[in-house]
Design a binder for these strands. Structure first.
Length: 729
DNA sequence: AACATCTAGCTTTTT
DNA sequence: GCTAGATGTT
């Protein structure tokens, strides 16, 4: 049987795979075959007679869970093991034991925009100006209270919040009450309520201990207090807790992940064997040496070696550009060089950045250079207005108390229940202490509501109630009926909004796929579908089979690998991010983030930084990240750039080095006598540097580059297009 | 009620 | 430079 074939495993991998009962800690460096170890262990447990249903493996993304499922299937393992994320386990348990948890089984899951709507609502009730209390900010601070399990006063004392403690406390309380009355849980609640349920209900916890006899937790370094409590509770009766992780890859401290959980595992379970997976089967020695140089500075870690098992590769490169537009052009040129000169498929190339906003320029230049790319951002689709509207209808069907959804769609499409009417209904409901939906069912009882509004409201209520009578159908059918009969489709058609229509069609298609997938899995239909859409993550959109270069944040990159990786914007203030200094957070996590990015690379690794980066629409001086300064083994390559587009006073031509495009690593492209209508010898004017003369053309950039001698003295290589050169003759 | 125009705030990172 | 929300206009 394939599963018992341990011959392909290293000694330490084998030690982890054959572990049977009791706790175990696997410290798995990047590229050390961790997923392989987990799946092999699950397979082995099953082969040894453990029923698959008794195995629970918790991951951080659906993608990781799916990956394990696929691998187990490939090993001919029977299905039945629970492989899912912490969050989806929580949803399942909370639905199954809703009564004991004290919540309604039809609860809605609120994402950030729903949460903001709740906050905005509360501010309105309390007559507070949302400009003084930005919902996003309030929300973040409420999150701090939840994640750190502290009172507002304690948080204020520890400088964790910057709103007045009293007001934040009031808002947090109102927020909690509101979510309770509308029957909704936010992401944090899913974990909090599950942890509480398990800790308060011994009988249930014991029962679950018998149901899930073997517990595996991946990415243990990124568990937060709640997840820790959940894992501890579920394994309390048997201690069969097998955790894998790497302290050096803990990058979610900002959302409450506690690196202590993994650092202190041996204290929690003194008897637990510890296995170190230090052999790296992914990256070249050059990549690993650099990764090690960077991470070894950290104090809070477990000493761990990175032993290269791959042959020598190319030295990592560091490119410097004038600004983010030049950088983006450089990235496109680099990608093309990797593809054309090194023969690497586009799908095996990735570009990582610190913040999502940085993807935009990259996109533009990749389009120009005709490079296929995918931006890995799965949640984006579900945040589109029309998609959220559809989901709001569906949520309202299951949960009549869901006010946020109700208010969202009551007049969408416009059905004559305008703002004033809604306000009357809300005011009346609040005064009567009643449900919004209950009040709407008896709209005639709302004082001051016009007869026309009463009848329109009644019609709306009737429509929703009719939908509700037939919820035991395939989700796609329900969704299509909602789309047609709500009037949304007509509204989109009339407005000629093809995109909105297409997106809803796509949503319905996804629902049909869900129906098909879950047909035999006896899932709970609409609730299951809504749960799935609510818990989708960015990385779930990553398609490794597409023929496109992947663009994603460094955070999303965790767990992936590519032949060639470029990390852009490696600048002071970005990596490490300026905001990472707030609230007493440390630099080590930022260093780990860079470490994660670096260790995704198999053969080629490049960094870039600029001398000026546009933020909020205006250029700001930038400099190389301290993390990359003075590193042995990192070849610094000054990419062709022009300097003066950002700040003529700061970086003078005098301190610009003489540029050379290295033949091996430099961006590809052909040398032309005439590039983009310019010719050698031509006089040109640069917006900041003034007049000059084109000396020669050089390879590089998608649109061509030129060496230009400026009259002022600077002699620079610059991208013709980005420089916005103006021909003088 | 729908549309156009203005302006303030914004960018960490995500389940 | 972009976007959401607010304000102004028909």
């Amino acid at each position: 049987m394939t599963v018992d074939n341990l011959s392909g495993l290293t000694e330490s991998q084998r030690a982890a795979v054959v572990h049977r009962d009791g706790p175990m800690l696997v410290l798995a460096g990047p590229g050390s075959g961790k997923t392989r170890v987990i799946t092999h262990r699950v397979a082995r447990l099953i082969a040894e007679g453990v029923p698959p249903q008794a195995i629970l493996a918790l991951t951080f993304t659906n993608k990781a869970a799916e990956e394990m499922r696929t691998r187990l299937r490939a090993m001919n393992m029977p299905p039945g093991a629970t492989l899912c994320t912490f969050h989806s386990l929580c949803v399942r348990l909370l639905r199954e034991f809703a009564g004991r948890a004290g919540i309604s089984p039809g609860f809605s899951i609120y994402d950030q925009s729903d949460q903001k709507a709740v906050i905005a609502d509360i501010l309105k009730d309390k007559h507070l100006d949302p400009r003084d209390y930005l919902p996003g900010r309030v929300l973040r601070q409420i999150g701090v209270l939840k994640n750190h399990l502290v009172t507002p006063e304690q948080a204020a004392a520890r400088n964790l919040i910057d709103l007045p403690a009293a007001i934040l406390g009031e808002l947090a309380a109102a927020y909690r009450t509101r979510l309770e009355t509308v029957g909704a849980l936010d992401f944090d609640d899913l974990l909090v309520r599950t942890a509480r349920l398990l800790e308060d209900d011994d009988e249930l916890t014991e029962r679950l201990g018998r149901r899930y006899r073997y517990l595996l937790v991946d990415e243990y370094q990124d568990t937060n207090a709640c997840q820790y409590r959940i894992a501890r509770a579920l394994s309390r009766s048997h201690d069969n807790l097998f955790v894998t992780g790497d302290p050096d890859q803990s990058i979610y401290g900002w959302r409450g992940a506690d690196i202590e959980n993994i650092l202190a595992f041996e204290r929690d379970f003194p008897s637990a064997p510890v296995v170190r997976l230090e052999e790296n089967f992914r990256s070249s020695p050059q990549v690993l040496r650099l990764a090690d140089e960077i991470i070894k500075v950290n104090a809070r870690r477990k000493e761990k070696r990175l032993i290269a098992r791959k042959p020598e590769g190319a030295p990592p490169r560091l490119y410097r550009f004038a600004d983010e537009r030049e950088e983006a052009r450089g990235v496109a040129a680099w990608v093309r060089a990797m593809h054309e000169d090194r023969g690497i498929e586009f799908r095996r190339i990735a570009v990582f950045y610190r913040t999502n906003a940085m993807s935009r320029v990259l996109e533009e230049s990749l389009i120009q250079a005709a490079v296929p790319y995918q931006i890995v951002k799965g949640v984006e689709f579900f945040h589109r207005r029309e998609v959220k509207d559809m989901l709001a209808y569906l949520r309202l069907l299951l949960n009549p108390s869901d006010e946020i959804s109700l208010l969202r769609i009551v007049n969408r499409p416009a059905r004559g229940i305008g703002e004033t009417s809604v306000q009357k209904i809300v005011t009346h409901a609040r005064a009567a202490g009643a449900d919004l939906w209950t009040v709407m069912k008896d709209a005639a009882g709302v004082p001051g509501l016009s007869p026309a509004a009463v009848s329109r409201t009644a019609k709306f209520v009737a429509l929703i109630e009719e939908f509700r009578t037939r919820l035991d159908r395939p989700v796609a059918e329900i969704a299509r009926e909602v789309y047609l009969r709500s009037g949304l489709k007509d509204a989109f058609d009339e407005a000629k909004d093809v995109d909105a229509g297409d997106n809803v069609e796509e949503l319905i298609n996804a629902a049909a796929q869900f129906d098909k997938d879950e047909a035999e899995a006896s899932s709970n239909g609409l609730a299951g579908y809504l749960q799935q859409t609510a818990l989708i993550s960015d990385i779930d959109a990553y398609d490794e089979r597409s023929g496109a270069v992947s663009l994603m944040t460094l955070h999303s990159a965790k767990g992936l690998e590519f032949e060639a990786v470029m990390i852009v914007g490696v600048e002071d203030g970005i990596i490490p991010h300026a905001r990472s200094f707030e609230g007493g957070r440390d630099l080590e996590e930022e260093r780990r983030l860079l470490f994660v990015g670096i260790t995704r690379a198999e053969r080629f690794l490049a960094f870039s930084h600029t001398l000026a980066r546009t933020m909020y629409g205006s250029p700001r001086p930038a400099s190389l990240s301290p993390f990359l300064r003075n590193l042995p083994g990192l070849d610094v390559v000054f990419a062709p750039f022009h300097q003066q587009t950002f700040d003529a006073g700061r970086a003078s031509a005098a301190d610009s080095p003489r540029f050379e495009i290295p033949a091996a690593a430099g961006p590809g492209g052909s040398v032309g006598v005439d590039v983009l209508g310019f010719r050698v010898g031509q006089r040109v004017r640069h917006p900041a540097l003034g007049p000059g003369r084109i000396e020669s053309f050089v390879p590089g950039g998608a649109a061509g580059r030129a060496v230009i001698q400026f009259d002022k003295g600077a002699r620079l290589i610059m991208g013709l297009q980005a420089a916005r050169l103006e021909p003088l003759d």
